[in-house]
C-alpha cells in the first residue's frame, strides 16, 4: 500500500459554500445582462460567450450544493457510488448539443423558450458539478472546468462561419487576367501549392512565376503542360534555379474547359506572353491529350525527353 497523507482536519465549509453561491450569482448575472458584450443577439460567438457565464454560474451552484451536503464528511469518499459519474457526463454532453446554433433565430423569437434554454444550461451544469463533486471531490472542479472550457471553445468555431483567411483574401483579390473566362477561378485548384502569386513554396512546391515562361518557350512545352495538369508529375525537377523531388496529383477529373482556362491563366500571368496574344491553350488540346493515358512518372520522362528545364 502506498504512503498516504494525514487525515484532513475538520473545517467549517459554510463560508466557502456562501462564497460559491455569490460567485455563481454574479456569473449568471453577467450572462443575463451580457456585461461587456456588444449586442449578443447578433453574433453566435458572443451568444456562446454568454453561455459560458451561465455554465460557470450553474457549475458554482452545483459545487456549493455538494459542498454543503458533504461538509461534515471530511476524510470520506464514496468509492461505491461511481454511478454518479453517468449523469455528470451526460449533462455535460447535453449542454453542448443544446447549443444548436441554427436554432437561435427560432429561439430568440420566443423569449420564454430562450429563457428556458439558458436556464437549462445553468441546471445541467449544476447537476454535472454536483455529481462529480459528490463522486470524487476535486473531480467536481475538473468537471466544471471542462464544461466552461467547452462552452468557451465552442464560441470560436461551432456555428461560426470561417473568418477571412489571408490566403483566401489573396485569391479573391487577384486581378482579372487576359484569359478571363474563369481562368482565375480555375486556378484556385492550384493555389494551395503554387500559391496565389505563383511563387510556390521554396524547397517544397515549385514556382510558376519565372518558370512557366521557360516551359512555353521550349519546343513541346505546351503539350507537356497539358499533360502535367491532366496526369500529374512525379520525380526530380528543376524550376527557377531550385531542385524539387515531389509529386503533383493529376487533375483529369476537371473539365477540359477548366483545365484550359487554368493553363491560359498561368500562361498570361507568368508566361511573359504579349498582352495581345491569344489564349495558347484550348479545350480541344486538353481533350486530345486525354487520348493517351500517362502515369506521373511517364510525364516526368516526357519532360526529360523534351529537354525541358
Amino acid at each position: 500500500m502506498p504512503a498516504t497523507t494525514e487525515p484532513r482536519a475538520t473545517v467549517n465549509a459554510l463560508p466557502r459554500v456562501y462564497l460559491l453561491l455569490v460567485l455563481g450569482a454574479v456569473a449568471v448575472a453577467v450572462g443575463i445582462f451580457a456585461i461587456g458584450l456588444p449586442d449578443p443577439h447578433l453574433s453566435v460567438r458572443n451568444h456562446h460567450i454568454q453561455h459560458v457565464f451561465f455554465i460557470l454560474g450553474g457549475g458554482l451552484y452545483g459545487l456549493a450544493l455538494a459542498m454543503g451536503l458533504t461538509a461534515n464528511k471530511h476524510g470520506k469518499t464514496w468509492p461505491g457510488r461511481g454511478v454518479w459519474l453517468a449523469p455528470a457526463l451526460l449533462a455535460s454532453l447535453v449542454v453542448m448539443v443544446a447549443m444548436w446554433p441554427s436554432t437561435y433565430p427560432v429561439i430568440e423569437a420566443n423569449p420564454t423558450l430562450h429563457a428556458l434554454q439558458h436556464g437549462f444550461y445553468i441546471v445541467a451544469s449544476a447537476v454535472a458539478t454536483f455529481c462529480a463533486y459528490y463522486f470524487a471531490r476535486s473531480a467536481g472542479w475538473i468537471m466544471g472546468g471542462m464544461q466552461v472550457v467547452m462552452a468557451w471553445a465552442a464560441a470560436f468555431g461551432f456555428g461560426v462561419n470561417p473568418g477571412p483567411s489571408p490566403l483566401i483574401a489573396q485569391v479573391a483579390a487577384m486581378p482579372a487576367t487576359a484569359s478571363a473566362g474563369g481562368g482565375a477561378a480555375a486556378y484556385q485548384n492550384c493555389v494551395a501549392c503554387h500559391m496565389a502569386d505563383g511563387g510556390g513554396m521554396p524547397g517544397v512546391f515549385p514556382p510558376l512565376a519565372g518558370h512557366v515562361s521557360n516551359l512555353l518557350a521550349a519546343e513541346g512545352g505546351q503539350e507537356y503542360m497539358v499533360r502535367v495538369v491532366l496526369y500529374g508529375l512525379q520525380g526530380q525537377i528543376s524550376a527557377a534555379g531550385s531542385s524539387y523531388a515531389g509529386a503533383m496529383p493529376g487533375w483529369g477529373h476537371l473539365s477540359d474547359d477548366d483545365l484550359a482556362a487554368a493553363l491560359n491563366h498561368v500562361s498570361s500571368t507568368w508566361g511573359e506572353l504579349p498582352a495581345t496574344a491569344s489564349a495558347p491553350f484550348s479545350a480541344a488540346d486538353v481533350q486530345a491529350a486525354r487520348g493517351t493515358q500517362l502515369t506521373p512518372q511517364q510525364v516526368h520522362e516526357l519532360r526529360g525527353r523534351l529537354g525541358l528545364p
Partner: peptide, 24 residues
C-alpha cells in the same frame, strides 16, 4: 475537446445549416 467537436459534428450531421470553422 473531443466531446465538443463530437457534439458540433453531430449537430452539423442533423442540421446542414450549421456552420463550423474548418480550422477550428
Amino acid at each position: 475537446a473531443s466531446m465538443l467537436l463530437g457534439a458540433a459534428m453531430l449537430v452539423r450531421w442533423l442540421d446542414p445549416s450549421v456552420g463550423i470553422d474548418p480550422l477550428w
